[in-house]
Design a protein around this nucleic acid. Structure first.
Length: 514
RNA sequence: GCGAAAGUAGCUCAAUUGGUAGAGCUCCAGCCUUCCAAGCUGGAGGUUGCGGGUUCGAGACCCGUCUUUCGCUCCA
């Protein structure tokens, strides 16, 4: 595997996903829809198992964490309060010569900053000339400085007016009038300014009307924040407590690529942990450790994970880091752990006019709790698991086999049942074993082709165990159980199969390792 | 969104300067077979991504479009 180039390995993952029914491109018969993918019969199982593992680890294993399932549609004001309406609306412009893209507002702000520099230089110069220099006085009286300041004010005013009117042509005209050049090419050969709204929108009601525009949520977190008080009161929750949920979110990415790593429609698994202000760094460290351990328990290899601390923090955070995973295309974000302070709840308090405070009976005071967020991309985790699991093994005798070394608890099928041959009553016994196991496990049945071929088929979809019924089985009620990873076989009693599978392949067993 | 490359059966790929679309694997039905993809027989599967154009004739050439990959850009 080491001699395979990363790009080729990544291609083989995508190919494997399609070939064995893990992931298909959306609407493939219509040439597909860019950056949208469907989970197939194997993928849906694997994804569900990952989600279950998360849900059980977060909700079932913590008495102070509860789960909810909030709607994708939310009141439009939600996104004003959260900052997404502003933050996800960037006017962008390209320089045709350098092929570089810029945010139009940044270009203009940088231009303004240059003029401000000039003012500062004037002030500096003057400061050297006069004793008892009053900078403010100088700024308000010096002709050259006043001229610069007027220019800045004029630009800002014009830009603000253009933005508020959503007049993108005017924004472009400002850039042209200011003779702003591309830092790379040095030319003024600009494209039109285009607005990229990262939020999808649609409308409620039968009549399409601007007042009814609603967004598809760009993150699931806000559904938790707006329900914080509902859950706290009805669940009689005391700080610290958490609210978890999994669900779809939507972002109209300009460039969405790298298979399911960045999709327009994706699924998040989020937990917002509500805490007393001042304790956030404690909990930040706690959840960093807890979440990393959760990932490590999957056994994909500890060398594949690392923390990446955010140096530049988002508007809502006072501490933030990512758990990064080594994907075939490098270390990339898998999960974010953010200390969001009271930003979100305060914003919703302000925009809704409803108090979102918590009464602390220990200290007899009310306050808006701080929030510690853990947020995993389910699709990214799926990709992490799958790409770590896919192996092309060389066997003795020059053979190779394709095997998915999935964590046993996550495998779509836990076992496959084979009659060694398709006669002598072996299929009947095999089927009766399957009928018994399927109450508790996803099991496959296969009697086609040689048994070796059947083993390989199951290896390719990551089935941990293959149970083969042979002639001896008819006599002593035993079968062979073949292990995916070692290809070794043991002979066990049919009556023991249930407990073996439970011990080895259940999510509960995985949870016990945490 | 820009630039580059690519798109032929489920998969991997052929197809001479433009001249009747093929192979292997897979899949399906059956035979054979007592444990790691390898035997035998038969079968299915294609409007060459899609739409135009040039030509007597296009998988190939031209234009458009969609999708994918890589680089840039953007981003939780």
């Amino acid at each position: 595997m080491s001699n395979i180039k990363p790009e080729d390995f990544f291609k083989s993952i995508i190919g494997h996903c399609k070939e064995y029914g893990f992931i298909f491109q959306s609407s493939e018969i219509y040439d597909g829809l860019s950056a949208v993918y469907d989970y197939g019969q194997m993928g849906a199982e694997l994804k569900k198992n990952i989600r279950d593992y998360w849900w059980k680890a977060m909700v079932q294993m913590h008495e102070n964490i509860v789960g909810i399932d909030s709607a994708i549609f939310m009141h439009p004001t939600t996104w004003k309060a959260s900052g997404h309406v502003d933050a996800f609306n960037d006017p962008l412009i390209d320089n045709k010569d350098s092929k570089k893209r810029y945010r139009a507002d940044v270009l203009i702000e940088e231009h303004v900053a240059k003029i401000e520099d000039k003012i500062n230089k004037e002030v500096e110069k003057a400061a050297k000339r006069f004793e008892n220099f009053d900078a403010e006085m100088f700024k308000s009286t010096n002709g050259r400085v006043k001229e610069y300041q007027e220019k800045i004010d004029a630009i800002n005013e014009r830009f603000k007016t253009a933005l508020n009117a959503n007049n993108l042509e005017e924004v472009k005209q400002i850039i042209i009038d200011l003779e702003i050049v591309c830092p790379i090419s040095g030319t003024k050969n600009w494209t039109d300014v285009r607005q990229f709204n990262l939020m999808f929108n649609t409308s409620t009601g039968a009549v399409t009307d601007e007042t009814n525009i609603i967004y598809l949520r760009p993150e699931t977190a806000q559904g938790i924040f707006v329900n914080y008080l509902n859950v706290q009161k009805t669940g009689r929750m005391k700080l610290p407590f958490g609210i978890a949920q999994t669900g779809k979110a939507f972002r109209n990415e300009i460039v969405a690529r790298q298979f399911i790593f960045r999709m327009r429609e994706f699924e998040q698994m989020e937990m917002q942990f509500f805490i007393k202000p001042g304790t956030e760094m404690e909990w930040y460290e706690y959840w960093k450790k807890a979440r990393l351990n959760w990932h490590l328990a999957l056994g994909l290899g500890s060398e594949k994970y690392r923390f990446h601390d955010h140096l530049k923090l988002a508007h809502y955070a006072n501490a933030a880091c990512d758990i990064e995973h080594q994907f075939p295309f490098g270390f990339k974000e898998l999960e974010g752990i953010h200390s969001r302070t009271d930003f979100d709840l305060k914003q919703h308090q302000e925009f809704s006019g409803k108090k979102l405070q918590y009464f602390d009976s220990e200290t007899n005071e009310s306050y808006v709790p701080y929030v510690l967020e853990t947020s995993v991309g389910l699709d990214r985790l799926f990709l992490a698991v799958l790409s770590s699991a896919l192996k092309e093994e060389s066997l003795e005798g020059g053979d190779t086999r394709t095997v998915l070394n999935l964590p046993l608890a996550l495998a779509p099928y836990k076992a496959a049942i084979f009659p060694l041959v398709k006669k002598d009553g072996l299929p009947e016994l095999a089927e009766s074993i399957m009928k018994d196991l399927k109450f508790d496990f996803m099991v496959a049945y296969d009697e086609k082709d040689t048994v070796g071929k059947r083993y390989r088929r199951q290896d390719a979809i990551g089935t941990p165990f293959c149970i083969t019924v042979d002639h001896q089985s008819l006599e002593d009620k035993t079968v062979t159980i073949r292990h995916r990873d070692t290809m070794k076989q043991d002979r066990v009693a049919i009556s023991d199969l249930h407990s073996i599978l439970t011990e080895k392949t259940s999510i509960n067993s995985l949870l016990r390792t945490l």
